[in-house]
Amino acid sequence: MEVRTIKVFTTVDNINLHTQVVDMSMTYGQQFGPTYLDGADVTKIKPHNSHEGKTFYVLPNDDTLRVEAFEYYHTTDPSFLGRYMSALNHTKKWKYPQVNGLTSIKWADNNCYLATALLTLQQIELKFNPPALQDAYYRARAGEAANFCALILAYCNKTVGELGDVRETMSYLFQHANLDSCKRVLNVVCKTCGQQQTTLKGVEAVMYMGTLSYEQFKKGVQIPCTCGKQATKYLVQQESPFVMMSAPPAQYELKHGTFTCASEYTGNYQCGHYKHITSKETLYCIDGALLTKSSEYKGPITDVFYKENSYTTTIK
């Protein structure tokens, strides 16, 4: 009895394709271990004539594949690729409408935090270190965002349907971005203890939790000093293409032309909904596939993004 075979390709990165001759009487799992086709788990399936010449994702289970996976995804987590594939199996079914010149995501599976993050990423200057993220990001900007969303979920250790947080998501993504040249110098002034300067680099240099107003941050924000008295913390120097200011959701007025974009969060910790506000020729609110415009805006804002380049204080 002759062994019926077909020729397929296996890959971990969709760049390096490895030619395989597979036995049609055995499952993919018996031949390769966990195997995925377009995100779908085909591990328990036997090869079919229609699979001839198709590319299958496999887990990096030998040295060659491990090197290829690390170079593309910059992670050695053995569960990463499987999590990416199972997320992709959902995100490829989502709709990605162009809204006001940006790629958004039609609401499904509690994905409003991903839509808000995706919209924000198209408006701030950011370059990702893992080629996987950078490639998928370019495709997302062009309207094909399924891979990018699935990668975000995998890097953030999230599953489809789980509630997510924009600030946490951005923080994970910033860790995989090139923020080497970003720098922030802060000064804390206390009447009792004097003053202390701190220099922050990388992710810490672009994120701040405690106030939404970048102007206020430049002037000074009140913080408790270690001595128990009130101290003032203010920005001395900022070198970065953008800054992200966050605070627990509270009524906040966004003035046209003073910011790049913002995240609105309605609801409580267990259950809520994100919308995205962007400042173009007027203010726009993007909620999944829905767009509304207004000249002014007041609502429960939790993150505001500002364009920056270089700032030095005039406070002496």
Rank of each mutant, 00 (worst) to 15 (best):
Q175T: 09
P78I: 12
Y252Q: 06
K92P: 03
K293S: 13
Q230M: 10
E2Y: 11
T10W: 08
H74S: 07
T313N: 12
K307S: 15
C193A: 02
A231P: 00
L126S: 01
M26W: 13
L186K: 01
Q237I: 11
L173D: 00
V12G: 09
Q175D: 06
A231T: 03
I124T: 03
G299W: 00
D180S: 12
F9L: 13
C227R: 01
E125M: 06
C112R: 02
R4P: 12
A87G: 07
T35L: 09
V189R: 14
S213R: 04
Y28N: 04
V236Y: 09
K280T: 07
D109W: 03
L17A: 07
N49I: 15
K229A: 13
S294P: 12
G33D: 05
L235G: 00
Y208G: 07
L291E: 06
K275Y: 00
A115V: 05
S104F: 05
S240W: 00
F70A: 15
E68K: 10
N309V: 11
Q175Y: 10
I277C: 01
L119V: 05
A205Q: 00
K183Q: 07
G202Q: 04
T103C: 07
R184C: 04
F217N: 01
L102W: 07
T314W: 10
K93N: 13
Q230I: 14
T43A: 13
V206H: 01
A289V: 09
E168W: 07
C149N: 05
R167H: 05
L254A: 01
N157I: 04
K298S: 12
G164N: 04
E308H: 06
G101H: 07
Y306F: 05
D109N: 08
Q230C: 06
S213T: 04
T302Y: 00
C156I: 11
T266F: 13
A40N: 15
V206I: 10
L163S: 07
Q222F: 14
Y252D: 00
K127I: 09
M26S: 11
T199C: 14
C225E: 00
E125I: 05
L88V: 06
Y72Q: 10
V160H: 05
L81K: 06
L121T: 11
K218D: 01
T10R: 10
I286W: 04
F128T: 02
G288Y: 02
E215K: 07
G272T: 01
L121H: 04
Y172I: 15
T211K: 01
Y265G: 03
K95F: 09
R184K: 03
R4I: 09
K201A: 10
Q238A: 02
L81A: 07
P224E: 14
E308L: 14
K93C: 09
T75I: 11
H48Y: 15
Q98Y: 06
T266C: 08
V42E: 08
S310A: 10
Y28P: 05
V21W: 15
H90Y: 15
A231M: 05
Q230F: 15
N100M: 15
S295W: 12
V188S: 07
T27F: 09
D38K: 13
K293L: 10
C227N: 00
F56K: 04
D23N: 15
D23L: 13
E71Q: 10
T76N: 09
R184S: 11
R139I: 11
T55V: 14
K54N: 15
N100P: 03
P300E: 14
S50T: 14
T258A: 10
C149Q: 01
G228S: 04
G33R: 05
Y137F: 15
D13W: 05
Q20S: 15
Q134L: 07
M207V: 08
R83N: 14
I105H: 04
G33V: 05
I105F: 04
V188D: 05
P78K: 13
C193S: 02
F305G: 01
M85T: 05
V21T: 13
C261L: 00
K93F: 11
G202D: 06
V243I: 10
N157K: 14
L81T: 11
T169L: 10
P131Y: 01
P60T: 09
M85G: 05
S246A: 00
T312F: 14
A154R: 02
D109R: 04
Q196L: 11
V243N: 00
A154E: 03
T120R: 03
S25F: 11
G288A: 02
A136P: 03
K183L: 14
F305A: 00
D63I: 07
K218Y: 04
A69F: 12
N14T: 08
I277F: 03
F259S: 00
C193W: 00
K307D: 12
Y28K: 05
Q197V: 14
G194I: 04
L118S: 03
Q196E: 14
F148R: 02
F32L: 10
A205S: 10
N129V: 08
V22I: 09
S294K: 13
V304K: 00
A247P: 01
G29F: 12
Y155D: 04
G272V: 02
N89R: 10
Q197S: 13
R4S: 13
Q222G: 09
Q31I: 15
L114R: 00
M26Q: 06
K7Y: 15
V304Y: 02
K127F: 08
T302K: 00
L200D: 12
M24T: 14
T226Q: 14
